[in-house]
Simulated assay, not measured.
Amino acid sequence: MSWTVVPASQFGAQMARWDTLHAAGAASPLLAADFVAALLTSFADGRELLAWHDTDGITDATTILSPGGFGVWHTFQPSQAPVGLWLQRGDGAPAALLRPLLASLPGPALLVGLTQCDPMLMARPADAACVRTADYIRTARITLRGAGGFDAFWEARGKNLRSNLKKQRNRLRQEGVTPRLEICRAPEQMAQAVADYGQLEGSGWKAAGGTAVDAANAQGQFYRAMLEAFAARGAASVYRYWLGDQLAAMDLCVEGGDCIVVLKTAYDEQLAGQLSPALLMREEACRQLFDDNRFGRIEFYGRVMEWHLRWTDDVRTMYHLNGYRWPGLARLHAMRRSDAGAE
């Protein structure tokens, strides 16, 4: 049993290894090789490492790591990556692999952090001598199967949500405005989809903060390359919601592992005082996803918001996992965090 550690620039040569392990595990689309490759191309700074663990010649774990502070490594975690880049065969806890990994990393490697872990993909381990976990965020999903179909799901939503959206649809009808949901799936449609999304998001509050997607910036380049790669294998979908000829809202989504993940949502904020274009889009998209019966769930992965709770009560807590070189480091780190929390 051993770890191999190489510069992450070699990821392209190891994509088949990553793909094979991905297919053997929980298979979240957010851990697919083409998602990881696009992240590295757009956001890596050259210090990242690719590591994989073999047992009897079979790769049973792999990860992308970035250096943190002195002696610290953590999973490569651009904000565009909703979950930490760690893959492991089977349902075993990663704890036994972390100390050997630390021994294989360059420099005085004292701590390795697996960030933004999803307990649905990797069960949260109990704290131990060299392992500690901490809550990250609560996140929501909509379960599609076993809910009795869309009508039953919708009837279970709050009366205010259902009534409010019904009033908005009646108002649009009275004004002669026809809503339309368009779904793009072809690779050649993704460049324009990202450009349209950037214009929609760039007209809102994110533009002022410099965080909006733009076709020309690193975010836009990432989403275009990633969505094109997913679309080439039938695993990308972009939802556009039109009110007449006006583009009102969009979702950028990836698919796989029995789920569809909503990566990004934007809407025309000039409509916000009169309409809820993103919620109107969500209602129609949910109806179609229930009817299609292709997926078991819709994942959001962002921090749970009030609007999520109007759509679902299926919420779970994501977590960070730290592995330490020695038990004393784990105790010291826990003490320092406890003292900081008390201040």
Rank of each mutant, 00 (worst) to 15 (best):
Ala123Asp: 10
Ala207Leu: 08
Gln80Pro: 01
Asp268Tyr: 04
Leu111Cys: 11
Thr143Val: 11
Arg141Ser: 12
Cys130Gln: 13
Gln274His: 08
Trp73Tyr: 15
Ile142Met: 08
Ser42Asp: 11
Ala140Pro: 06
Leu98Asn: 03
Ala126Pro: 11
Ala24Cys: 06
Gly202Phe: 10
Ala61Tyr: 12
Cys253Lys: 00
Leu161Ile: 07
Thr75Lys: 07
Gly46Thr: 11
Lys159Cys: 00
Cys130Thr: 15
Ala231Arg: 02
His74Arg: 15
Arg124Gly: 06
Leu87Tyr: 09
Val315Phe: 07
Arg173Phe: 07
Glu306Tyr: 14
Thr63Ile: 15
Asn170Trp: 03
Leu30Arg: 02
Leu101Ser: 10
Ala134Thr: 13
Val36Ser: 10
Gly204Arg: 00
Glu306Thr: 14
Leu165Pro: 02
His320Ser: 09
Leu30Glu: 05
Ala152Gly: 08
Arg233His: 09
Ala186Ile: 00
Ala8Tyr: 09
Gly113Thr: 13
Tyr241His: 01
Glu306Trp: 11
Thr317His: 07
Gly107Thr: 13
Trp326Met: 00
Arg99Thr: 13
Leu21Cys: 10
Val315Pro: 03
Ala248Asn: 01
Ile64Thr: 05
Gly204Phe: 07
Val6Gln: 08
Val177Phe: 09
Gly210Met: 15
Pro82Asn: 05
Leu172Ala: 07
Ser9Met: 05
Arg173Tyr: 04
Gly323Leu: 05
Thr59Asn: 15
Arg162Val: 03
Asp251Ser: 03
Ala61Asp: 11
Ala229Arg: 11
Leu39Thr: 06
Met305Thr: 14
Ala8Trp: 13
His308Met: 09
Ala249Phe: 03
Leu98Ser: 05
Glu306Asn: 14
Asp314Thr: 13
Thr312Ala: 02
Ala152Leu: 08
Phe153Lys: 05
Asp314His: 15
Ala152Thr: 09
Ala128Cys: 13
Leu30Asp: 02
Ala26Thr: 04
Thr75Asn: 05
Ala23Gln: 13
Arg185Lys: 02
Tyr267Met: 09
Gly71Tyr: 01
Leu172Ser: 03
Ile64Cys: 07
Thr143Ala: 14
Arg316Asp: 00
Asp245Met: 00
Asp151Ile: 03
Asn170Leu: 05
Thr59Val: 15
Tyr239Val: 04
Gly57Asn: 12
Leu271Asp: 03
His74Gly: 06
Pro187Lys: 10
Asp135Arg: 15
Gln192Lys: 10
Trp242Pro: 00
Leu172Cys: 09
Arg337Pro: 04
Thr59Phe: 10
Glu255Arg: 09
Arg99Val: 14
Glu306Val: 11
Glu269Arg: 14
Leu30Met: 12
Met1Cys: 01
Pro106Ala: 11
Arg303Glu: 15
Ala334Pro: 00
Arg297Trp: 05
Leu40His: 12
Gly146Leu: 11
Leu144Met: 02
Ala93Ile: 13
Leu227Pro: 08
Lys159Ser: 12
Phe300His: 06
Gly12Ala: 10
Asp45Val: 08
Ala134Phe: 12
Gly202Asp: 13
Ala61Met: 12
Leu243Gln: 00
Thr4Ile: 14
Phe76Leu: 05
Asp314Ser: 12
Ala37Asn: 15
Tyr319Val: 04
Lys159Ala: 12
Ser237Ala: 10
Ala266Trp: 09
